[in-house]
């Protein structure tokens, strides 16, 4: 996959999502399902890296660029994140006129909610790739409960998960190759 092609794919996903992991379904579809240049495992790793470093959530796209095409790919990923943000420049000029229009609000709302539905569907293959034994399933369930019911930062959750599975491996409960 050429760099330009990669940029178009990444931009398509960032420019049609409204923050967070909403860009993930498109990326999964294009790079894992269709182009086969990325694995479910790598996509999960990109999310881990994103949440273990400071900064906004969308930056896992940079890791994906790196996995697909090395350093140039990572730069392409960065460009794909930055490009849609420029849309605020023209938007600021027209602000006020349509920002409260019910149809504009309704359109955006529908897109945001639809992206949640898509993300739910995408978590199925990601889960299938990552949750390969009982220890991983327990970790994921506990992590989800902690995320839903406490305000513990995701960095600590990832760190605790890593420690837990290392301990489980040392105890011979799981075997990772």
């Amino acid at each position: 996959m050429g760099l330009w092609e990669l940029y178009v794919v990444l931009l398509e996903s960032t420019a049609t999502s409204f923050g967070g992991l909403a860009s993930l379904p498109l990326l999964h579809d294009a790079l894992v399902t269709n182009a086969h240049v990325l694995s479910d495992q790598q996509l999960n790793e990109a999310i881990v890296i994103n949440r273990s470093t400071p900064g906004p959530v969308g930056f896992y796209v940079v890791s994906i660029g790196y996995f697909v095409a090395g350093l140039p790919g990572a730069l392409v990923g960065w460009l794909a994140i930055v490009t849609p943000a420029l849309a605020i420049i023209p938007a600021a000029h027209f602000a006020g006129r349509w920002i409260d229009h019910p149809r504009v609000k309704s359109t955006l709302q529908a897109v945001v909610i639809a992206s949640a539905g898509l993300l739910a569907a995408t978590s199925i293959p990601l889960g299938r790739s990552a949750l390969t034994d009982a220890v991983a399933i327990v970790i994921a369930v506990v992590a989800l409960a902690v995320l839903l019911f406490t305000r513990v930062g995701s960095l600590w959750i990832i760190a605790a998960a890593a420690v837990a599975s290392t301990a489980a491996s040392a105890a011979g409960l799981i075997s990772v190759i």
Binding site: A136, L147, I157, A162, I174
Partner: peptide, 16 residues
């Protein structure tokens, strides 16, 4: 081994 656990947590992050 550590990554194995971390990506399990990543699935939780996605669902969340």
């Amino acid at each position: 081994a550590a990554i194995h656990g971390a990506i399990a947590a990543a699935v939780a992050l996605t669902v969340w």
